[in-house]
Write a protein that binds this DNA or RNA. Structure first.
Lengths: 191, 191
DNA sequence: GGGAACCTACCTAGTGATAGATAGACAACA
DNA sequence: TGTTGTCTATCTATCACTAGGTAGGTTCCC
């Protein structure tokens, strides 16, 4: 499925923006329609149900996110640099976009999501953990540490998702940096 | 304000349960009314607006949570034991209650909350960080580490809130324990 | 009697979703 | 060339339902 352009793309953009601020239950077809300048019935033309729209938004988000991270085994890029890139991706959501990570927010309200949307969020987390574990398993800086790579990967993911929640609620961007500064504990527990 | 008992208390219970599963926008006065066996108009008798109800739920939640944690300076309880108690509180939400931390979920959707509710969530985080920082500042196990106590306190809070989100989305309770196992990195970064 | 707790009945606004119509683009074909 | 048919994207209008909230009445107990 190619990434939709034109109005369908605009709808996805608007839905992503609103979902990342207000959650899945926090926006309506009418909101989106008004935002992109059409009627709500026309939104249904592109995305028959809200569940399908939600799943499409999450899927596109995941693909973009993983593509941005790149190959975790790229020999041109050191593991430390990849981890920095990972943290920077979350920081950008907070500081530049002033939005949550889409899947961090949807994950919090996972019990109220249609199954298709929940599945996409799950996939996002799985892909993130796999990517982080691949980076952390690369032989480079420090010893691998006591915890296995997957546990440390999960911890980094949880730490950054939580950092967005706490920093946004406290309305202090600096809180994110304070928290992100502890990520190195996971990268090189013996360092 | 004394903790309401009777129907008002039941309403708070029901609202807390639903909010911790589906978020602030995921439950209605009708849901609560049906749950406690009255009419939605009667819910308005006890809590005039949804914002006031939400704030009351969050406030009661915070008070209970902090009371459960106890005095961070209690000489009878070692810092390590206090930290274990803190982690156990989050674990109980996941495993026993099968719910999110109320403020973790509300914090994620903070932009769509009425100001009074958002303020309560903010207070919860501030109190948590203060409690954790007090524990981490106690001279006992290991050196205080490089990061100041407040940064480590923020990190522990973010890590556990994020752990709930990730574990619940992946539907694997063990994920929480894997993540929680890394908390010791913050307790004694030199250990 | 009077107030607390709850009710019935209702309102306005908004929800996701559907039916049916329409204007314009594009191709196929006599 | 002109016509016919089909497709895309949008519209208007409406559906059944739910949202939070309100007015006014009833029941029950001190």
């Amino acid at each position: 499925m190619a990434t939709p352009t034109g109005k369908a793309g605009e709808i996805l953009d608007s839905a992503e923006r609103q979902a990342r601020r207000r959650g899945y239950n926090g926006f309506s077809f009418r909101d989106l329609a008004a935002d992109v300048g059409i009627k709500s019935a026309s939104v249904h033309y592109h995305f028959p149900t809200k569940a399908e729209l939600g799943a499409a938004v999450a899927q596109r988000y995941s693909e973009r996110f993983m593509a941005h991270l790149g190959d975790p085994a790229d020999p041109e890029v050191a593991p430390d640099a990849l981890l920095e890139r990972y943290v920077a991706a979350f920081r950008r959501a907070l500081v530049r976009d002033r939005q949550m990570c889409l899947c961090g927010l949807l994950g919090a309200e996972v019990e109220s999501l249609p199954p298709k949307v929940a599945a996409e969020v799950r996939r996002f987390f799985e892909q993130n953990v796999a990517w982080l574990a691949a980076v952390l398993s690369r032989p480079n800086r420090g010893a691998p540490g006591n915890e296995p790579a997957e546990a440390r990967a999960l911890a980094i993911l949880a730490l950054l998702e939580g950092a967005l929640v706490v920093a946004r609620t406290l309305k202090r961007d600096a809180v994110f940096d304070q928290i992100a500064g502890t990520v190195t504990s996971f990268a090189a527990p013996d360092g």
